[in-house]
Structure formats: structure tokens, C-alpha cells
């Protein structure tokens, strides 16, 4: 409870800045309209107008809140006008990509740790893959997969995977290599097999690293799924909402989609955090 005051203070400060910015950015439009219609506005009217426009440059917080409320709570979740529906479309691709990315990342990490050839040959490509802007190759992935008859969730999941396997590789390589020489020698004195060494030592030792990576991978996955929805003019998903919003100047819709994306990311990362705490607690690593 002690923390609530500072948290509220920060939120309040953000809201004040936001309202002020909305006034500043939307002021010109309001003044132009007034001039065209030949009417004079009081300051009060001007302020009220900047916070209630249909297509403001920057919507006021309460406009976004109302839009969120209407599209989340008041619409049937199966409806195309429901933001929950769009969020689920994006989330399903995110989760599929996250799962694939985690699997791919873990397999690559195991290969890199156990094979010097893979360490030298694969790792540079893993790093190079992340230097390519995802926006540049996302359309190509979509088009290529579409050409061979794959569309829908999978192409988006592939883009998510492309972004999310990287932190898992890096974290798991570090984690699987975290046992000290002494711990490895110890295993040797017990005449442990390679599989036993992996399961009893390397894998458990890598868990804290894995969870740190999974959180980054989840956030990256969501970005990937949204980016995957942009270039094809997808009809559903948070990316589609962002795209449609920008076509028609629906800034309120854009902002509410952004907030929805943030909420989904926060929830997903939060769930990983809960799993992390439970796992590490069971492993006695949580102090």
C-alpha cells in the first residue's frame, strides 16, 4: 500500500502531460474550424473541443478509454468490431510463434553448446538474422508462404518465431554453459553419461536464464505478430486495427489498439513471471 501514492502520482503526471499535449496538437484544427464557420470560441470551449474531436491528432485519454470500453466490454467477443476478437487473433499467432521460437531456440542452443562446429557456424547466422529489419522481410515471408498455400495463422507465427527464438538461443547458451568446471568434473567423477549431465546439471542450471529470455521472447513475439498483420492488409488482428485506423485517420482506434497490445503483452509476460516464480520456488532457487 505504501507504493500506491508514488504510482498514482506518476499516472496523474502522465495524464496531465497527455491532456496538455492533446490540447496543443488539436488546437489548430479547432481554431481553423471556428474561423471557417465564423464563430468565436472561449478558451473553455476551445479546450473542450480539443478533447472531443472525432479524428484528433492526439486523442485525449478519456476518448481512448471510452473506445476501449465500447470495443472490449460492449461488443460480443466473436464480433469483428470487438477488440477482444482482434486481440485473440494476434495473441494466437503470438503464442504459436512463441512456442515455435522457444523450441527452435532451445534446440539451437543445445546444438551450439554441444557442437563446436555449430558454435562456429550457426551462432553468426543467428546474430545476423536479427540485424535484418523485420519490416523488410515480413512481407516476403507472407508472400512466399502464401504462394505455397500457407496462409492465416502460420505465416504470422513464423514472423513471431523469427523474432522470439533469438533471446532464447542467447539465454539458453549462456545458461547451459553456466555450470562451473568443478561441477562438470564432479559429474565426471561419478562417471555420469552425457545425457545425465545434461538433464541433472546443465538443464536445471539454465532455468533462471531461460525465464529471463522467455519474457523478452514473448514481447518480441507480439511485435512480430502485429508486424505480420501489417503488410498484407489483414482483416483481423491488432495489426489490422492499427492499419485500418491509419487509413481512415481513426486515431482513437489506433490508440486503443496500442493499449490493447500493451495489455496483452503485459498479461503474457506476467504469466511467464508467475510460472517462473513457481518453478524457481519449487527448485529452491527463489529466495
Amino acid at each position: 500500500m505504501r507504493n500506491i501514492l508514488p504510482v498514482l502520482t506518476v499516472i496523474l503526471a502522465l495524464l496531465v502531460v497527455w491532456y496538455a499535449a492533446a490540447f496543443q496538437l488539436n488546437k489548430q484544427w479547432a481554431l481553423d474550424m471556428a474561423a471557417r464557420q465564423d464563430r468565436v470560441m472561449t478558451t473553455q470551449q476551445l479546450i473542450a473541443d480539443t478533447w472531443a474531436q472525432d479524428k484528433p491528432k492526439l486523442p485525449a485519454p478519456h476518448q481512448v478509454a471510452v473506445e476501449l470500453w465500447e470495443t472490449v466490454a460492449l461488443k460480443n467477443v466473436t464480433s469483428r468490431r470487438s477488440l477482444v476478437y482482434h486481440a485473440w487473433v494476434t495473441l494466437s499467432a503470438t503464442l504459436a510463434g512463441f512456442g515455435l521460437g522457444t523450441l527452435l531456440g532451445t534446440l539451437l542452443a543445445v546444438g551450439i553448446v554441444y557442437s563446436r562446429v555449430m558454435d562456429l557456424s550457426v551462432m553468426p547466422w543467428v546474430i545476423a538474422s536479427q540485424t535484418i529489419p523485420i519490416l523488410a522481410i515480413a512481407p516476403m515471408i507472407i508472400v512466399v508462404l502464401n504462394a505455397i498455400g500457407i496462409s492465416g495463422l502460420l505465416p504470422k507465427a513464423m514472423i513471431s518465431m523469427y523474432l522470439s527464438f533469438f533471446p532464447v538461443v542467447v539465454g539458453m547458451v549462456k545458461g547451459l554453459r553456466s555450470p562451473s568446471q568443478m561441477e562438470l568434473d564432479q559429474m565426471c567423477t561419478w562417471n555420469a553419461s552425457g545425457v545425465q549431465e545434461f538433464i541433472k546439471l546443465r538443464l536445471p542450471a539454465s532455468m533462471p536464464y531461460l525465464f529471463a529470455s522467455l519474457k523478452i521472447a514473448m514481447a518480441a513475439s507480439l511485435v512480430g505478430a502485429i508486424v505480420g498483420e501489417l503488410p498484407t492488409g489483414a482483416v483481423a488482428g491488432l495489426g489490422a486495427r492499427l492499419l485500418a485506423g491509419s487509413y481512415y485517420g481513426q486515431t482513437i482506434q489506433i490508440w486503443s489498439a496500442l493499449f490493447m497490445a500493451a495489455a496483452v503483452a503485459a498479461a503474457a509476460v506476467g504469466i511467464i513471471g508467475i510460472v517462473q516464480r513457481a518453478t524457481l520456488k519449487r527448485m529452491g532457487l527463489d529466495r
Binding site: S180, M182, D185, T189, W190, N191, L201, P204, G284
Partner: peptide, 29 residues
């Protein structure tokens, strides 16, 4: 498995209880 080796550091696995740590070589065997 003719010898037991005790290293400079205890080298107990933090994710295993004391019992679990002692059981480790027995599991491996």
C-alpha cells in the same frame, strides 16, 4: 566408482535439497 572426490568448494546444487544432493550420484549410478 572406486573413489569419492571432495572439491574445494562444496559444489552442492542450489536447486536440490541436501538429501537430493547426496542422492545425485546414487541416481546417476
Amino acid at each position: 566408482r572406486a573413489y569419492g572426490y571432495v572439491f574445494q568448494a562444496a559444489g552442492l546444487y542450489p536447486w536440490r535439497t541436501i538429501g537430493g544432493n547426496i542422492r545425485l550420484p546414487l541416481e546417476i549410478m
